[in-house]
Amino acid sequence: MIELLLAAILVLAVYAMLTRDLLHGTIALSALSLLSALAFAVLKAPDVAITEAAVGAGVSTVVFVWAIRATERMEKQ
């Protein structure tokens, strides 16, 4: 179970690394955080799960989206 979640997380991380569209990368990171939160819930850490969901998927996504809108969306090569 955890291995499956981790594999999905790893795929999302690699996608976030490779994609040229920073907004897509942010969404991938946000999904990564949600999957992590799910994994933490499975791993008997409900507090960490709630924090990860609130902070990782919530606050940090807001901050990333702000940064991308304040700068530029596409990574130039």
């Binding site: 955890i2 981790l6 997380i9 991380a13 976030a16 690394m17 920073l22 990368g25 990171l29 990564l32 955080s33 992590s36 994994a39 933490f40 791993l43 008997k44 850490a45 960490v48 990860e52 990782g56 940090s60 990333f64 940064a67 991308i68 700068t71 990574e75």
Partner: peptide
């Protein structure tokens, strides 16, 4: 921004290790 992505991923890996092994 990509560099900051990397930092976020790096950090969540360390968190994951702690929680997973602690479980």
């Amino acid at each position: 921004v990509k560099k900051v992505f990397g930092l976020a991923i790096l950090n969540s890996a360390a968190v994951f290790l702690f929680v997973m092994e602690g479980a």
